[in-house]
Design a protein around this nucleic acid. Structure first.
Lengths: 248, 248
DNA sequence: CGACACATTGACCAGACTCAAAGCTAGTGG
DNA sequence: CCACTAGCTTTGAGTCTGGTCAATGTGTCG
């Protein structure tokens, strides 16, 4: 597979960046010129592993991915879910050893961009450097919100919060509308993100369905009572720093 | 209070930065020339609040601080503890609205550095920009490790892990040695960091004392069995990205 | 059609929480 | 210098959220 620019692929990244900031034509073009190599992966494959020292960043073009860490005895914590346009391992640009893994959740297409090219881009375009930095800071803001969920929200509140967050993030890049979106996350993965067992996730989902808040079936999330969900989760979208503030 | 350079104060920041990277003389001097205004605060005072749009970053010169977020009903999650040399709100440089608060835990002295000056510094010294970016990325790495603790470790393991982390971070800037350090964190705050109640924190501490792992009395932490603590916590210091890797 | 992964449910269990009551301790003011 | 206070620590008893174990149902894909 060649290492070459691919404006079509980079359009995904540009769309994502424009969900948190505005880009000039020059910046867009600089991004479009980034060289990359695309790969297609099956579901549940590691892209980068804990301990690796990768030489490139991974842009997701299609499918879903997640970052996670395993404990010795198999316990797993998921840190984030990622969708097309995301660069989940941007931090590897300046932190050389991975302290967690990145894996596909569905069949996925990814573009690998050499660190070298990204370094060059941020040197030549400091504004883009700042934007990438900002991107990683928003990542951290989401981590903080997840910490609140893991430490201080009930399972019900926490899950409600996650659905609010996922919906708005998907909507911001045009992957959700009318309170409905694809959500290819198994209950086991949901549990590993929320710090719960899949059994309990199942019970909370049943409860939410019973209260006509949401339904999650055949990998499709339908939010039936957005306002109520927001209220229960005490959801405030500020931390997402979305440029076009949506339905919230 | 004047807005002026203060090399003595900046020595704290330099020491911290040198715990994660090496600095050139020129870089050190550029940092020393940053203008700042120092303040002294009582314990348990907010420095920046959720929702604020600060125009400066806060460098801690003396005392301890923490970042936290409150839920509507008073539940609190602490995200991080901060010691002299830390700039806990570096992220405010590129994320304009605070999504959490920063407060002192003890009587503290802080230096406020205008965003403007920091922006200028990072433009004139891209390497320092990168270093600050890296600093925020390590922050995020620590968040991830805390997420594992909150979601997947038992209270005992989680607390053991926190003590390992705090000890190494303090040691890296010369504030701990011989498995002993000052730790002015009340059990209630420990609970808010670990996602536990202060009652349970107390019980776990008693248990740790009983097993001759650590003692925590009069704000002093003594680690009596480092290797054992590391084993229980499954502690791996890689995520801290410390330059001089210590006792681990 | 069979296999495998995922979802669902029940019964029982445990780690952590709640509530409540004492003990300590450091800092304050007289 | 000591008494007082406020905040922090410690402990017990009882409860509850979420976990464990295990069986069964469902759906998708080769």
């Amino acid at each position: 597979m060649p290492l070459a620019p691919n404006p079509h692929a980079m359009a995904m990244l540009i769309r994502k960046l424009e969900s948190i900031a505005s880009l000039s034509d020059e910046q867009r073009q600089a991004i479009e010129r980034l060289p990359l190599r695309t790969h297609t992966l099956a579901a549940r494959q590691d892209i980068v592993r804990d301990g690796d020292k990768p030489g490139h960043c991974c842009l997701i073009l299609d499918g879903w991915a997640c970052r996670y860490k395993l404990l010795g005895d198999g316990r797993r914590q998921i840190f984030s879910f990622h969708i097309p346009g995301d660069v989940p391992d941007l931090q590897s640009l300046h932190i050389h050893t991975m302290d967690h893994s990145l894996a596909t959740m569905t069949k996925a297409t990814v573009a690998l961009i050499p660190h070298e090219s990204l370094h060059e881009l941020t040197l030549r375009h400091p504004d883009l450097g700042t934007l990438f930095w900002r991107e990683t800071l928003i990542d951290a803001a989401i981590f903080r919100e997840w910490m609140v969920g893991l430490g201080r929200r009930s399972a019900f509140e926490h899950m409600a919060h996650l659905f609010c967050e996922l919906y708005l993030t998907l909507q911001a890049v045009g992957l959700a509308e009318n309170y409905r979106c694809r959500l290819p996350i198994a209950q086991l993965d949901l549990g590993d993100a929320l710090g719960l067992t899949s059994v309990h996730v199942n019970r909370v989902l049943r409860d939410m369905r019973g209260r006509a808040l949401i339904t999650l079936r055949s990998q499709t999330l339908v939010i039936e009572a957005w306002e109520e969900l927001v209220r229960i989760a005490q959801f405030d979208p500020t931390y997402l720093n979305l440029e076009r503030r949506a339905a919230a």
